[in-house]
């Protein structure tokens, strides 16, 4: 497999990316809205507004999107956003789901990239469409049905990545809460590997567990957690793509923190 980007580094360093920009064999994908993209993006990046992917995330649709962006099975791909990595993680997950292997997150957001004084451009690169196969990767996908089936298993850990107040108010029974903000550090979208490992260790989450992440609705915040876990080498991580919104609409059981008026503690 092509190793333009060292696969041991799970997240691409912004400095390294600058060196790679000039080489056309790598695809940089900006997942912000089209308008934002047009006002300036990382040089050579192409645009995939997240909404486009969410509109239809069947494997055929993802495949077509990849091909239209010139991403073949072998193309090293780097994704970024300006939403602390949550949108781009969701795209990474989608590509991995159809079997794309070499896809990484940029370690900073677009704003941080700009603040670092790195190159941006308004030029839209020409795209040569590519062919991409579909080799579904079922072990990274969780459905409501699946979650319900395994949630009592000893080895399964369900992680809710919404903010603490949302979690206290309602969550999937048995889920633990790691708000998405916990995953970042100052100026980087993800903690260091050691930082992430410490968090898991403190919480008593075994890296051998089967971990299922979810968030509010479309799997972005939990996509970031999915990515963060994968990137430190946790082997079995699944994203519950349709998350709590679907869970509620299916009228599945819900837990809450009883006998406390914690909402009144949060300043509006």
């Amino acid at each position: 497999m092509c190793c333009m980007i060292d696969s041991d580094i799970p997240i691409i360093n912004s400095k390294l990316l600058r060196e790679k920009i000039q080489e056309n064999s790598i695809r940089i994908v900006d997942v912000r809205r089209e308008q934002e993209y047009q006002q300036g993006h990382i040089t050579n990046a192409v645009n995939l507004p997240l909404a486009k992917l969410l509109a239809d995330d069947s494997s055929e649709s993802i495949q077509k999107i990849a091909q239209d962006l010139g991403i073949s099975d072998e193309t090293p791909t780097v994704i970024y956003d300006d939403t602390f990595g949550a949108l781009s993680s969701r795209v990474v997950w989608a590509l991995q789901y159809i079997g794309h292997e070499d896809v990484k997150l940029l370690d900073v957001t677009f704003s941080q990239w700009k603040d670092l004084g790195y190159e941006i451009s308004t030029e839209v690169p020409e795209i040569e469409t590519a062919t991409h196969s579909v080799k579904i990767n079922p072990e990274i996908m969780a459905t409501a049905e699946y979650l319900e089936k395994v949630k009592e298993n000893k080895n399964v850990v369900i992680i809710d990545n919404r903010e603490r107040l949302n979690y206290l108010e309602q969550h999937i029974p048995g889920a633990i809460n790691i708000p998405y903000r916990t995953l970042a550090t100052d100026g980087k979208i993800l903690r260091t590997k050691e930082g992430m490992k410490t968090l898991l260790k403190n919480r008593g989450i075994s890296e051998d567990a089967e971990i299922i992440t979810y968030c509010g609705s479309v799997g972005t915040l939990s996509g970031l957690a999915y990515y963060a876990l994968k990137s430190i080498g946790v082997p079995n991580v699944k994203l519950y793509v349709h998350s709590f919104k679907e869970w509620k609409s299916l009228e599945k059981p819900i837990d809450k923190q009883e006998n406390a008026n914690y909402w009144d503690l949060s300043a509006e």
């Binding site: 603490r164 968090l199 403190n202 008593g204 914690y262 503690l265």
Partner: peptide, 24 residues
Amino acid sequence: MYSIGSAHFSTRENIQLHWVILED
């Protein structure tokens, strides 16, 4: 990261974070 997205100024000049998971 670890609390409810707000903090509390107390009458004894402390600043408190509530609903923090003990392990954090």
